[in-house]
Design a protein around this nucleic acid. Sequence first.
DNA 1: TTGACTAATGACCCGTTGGTCATTAAAGCA
DNA 2: TGCTTTAATGACCAACGGGTCATTAGTCAA
Lengths: 225, 225
Amino acid sequence: MPLTQEPSPRSEPAPRRPRQRRKEARPGEIIDAALALWAEQGFAATRLEAVATRAGIAKGTIYLYFPSKEALFEAALRDRIGGTLASVGAQLPELEGSLEAELGLLLHAIYDRLLETDSAALLKVLIGEGHRFPGLVELYREVALASGLGMVRRILERAAQRGELRLPPEAVDPRMVVAPAIAAAVWRMLFGVGPSLDRTAYEKAHLDLVLRGLLVEPCSTTQSP
Amino acid sequence: MPLTQEPSPRSEPAPRRPRQRRKEARPGEIIDAALALWAEQGFAATRLEAVATRAGIAKGTIYLYFPSKEALFEAALRDRIGGTLASVGAQLPELEGSLEAELGLLLHAIYDRLLETDSAALLKVLIGEGHRFPGLVELYREVALASGLGMVRRILERAAQRGELRLPPEAVDPRMVVAPAIAAAVWRMLFGVGPSLDRTAYEKAHLDLVLRGLLVEPCSTTQSP
DNA sequence: TTGACTAATGACCCGTTGGTCATTAAAGCA
DNA sequence: TGCTTTAATGACCAACGGGTCATTAGTCAA
């Protein structure tokens, strides 16, 4: 049951107004609050009481909308899955640029998603406590991962048709192409938002590295400005 | 208090022999059991009772050697930190090969550590529930990470002196060099040991990608065999 | 063989927390 | 204004699990 498609959350601690009936808005607010707390504390360590407080409601209210803590996680995952990536996928066909342009756009979207969105909390929970949700890990693999890697693959195939690739596209592991973004996400999950990860420079270095590894004529690409 | 330095665990579910006094062996066995369970279930979700059972002892025995669950995690981290990486560091000075040879050796050691060792459980716990151990996250950053990245940096500097690099070594982010290994570890933490990650091929592709991105003359490197 | 020492045990304690439900009150309507 | 509907509440329950400790038994020196 997809609830919201909005990838940017309407978070903030939520000031406690007396008692208000807002049936429509609740589920999204609860998911936002939960993701925010899970991102910093993990799934098991986050009490539902805390989620409720952050959402500005009482604990019981959560059970009006979600039958259990695990169901809340599933709803959060389904809500946030897809999102930006899909919209990038829609843009791609019209783009028709070089490998550099297309890959740059996709990687940018991936970094947005992994570093600036609370979807990162999902990844964190799936890594640390995913064994509790075997079905959801599978779902994540099929939807989020497969779509991202599938997009990489399509971009590579198009570049190969243009003769830009040094290898046949089947010989390239798409995971390798996105790996530095995953590593950046891990960095953030471990050490939090800090001065140690300069996204812009990192992202540029990533694109540069990958292009040099893939292109027929790598020496023509970005020379540090 | 470092207990064991042995990186390869003496695990196995441990058959329940009646009652035996083995003061020396216990701490290591407990750590092994804990890491094995944390790797698949996470820290918070693993009961100490389960750790004890796996180690072939009773729960109370754990508290004979570790004052608390968190202390057990700290001991496990301190026990496993360092290890293989340090031994590679000792080998490096004598090696004096090409960038390819040196980096290949280091990456191989990193993959060993991240994919074949229960140290991976530490990373998993630190990612998912690290907020509970701020001091240990810092320790991990300083010891494990800094030593790994420092080694990359030293290898790069040596390669630069030989004129092998296209960029000054300061311009290369060492994290970028190891990123695909981190991504592989994430893959494993998410989906477990499966047919989907062919380590040998992946590792080779990793080395190839990085070398092409770094070397002055990348076209001379590995052409797919 | 026996006694002293202490590693090992597991029943027990109690704080925590996911989940319930009788009660309260906001909102809409006549 | 009063009545009905139902969203929201929070006190409460029960299970769970980290941590304790009186008791048991392995080991070894005398």
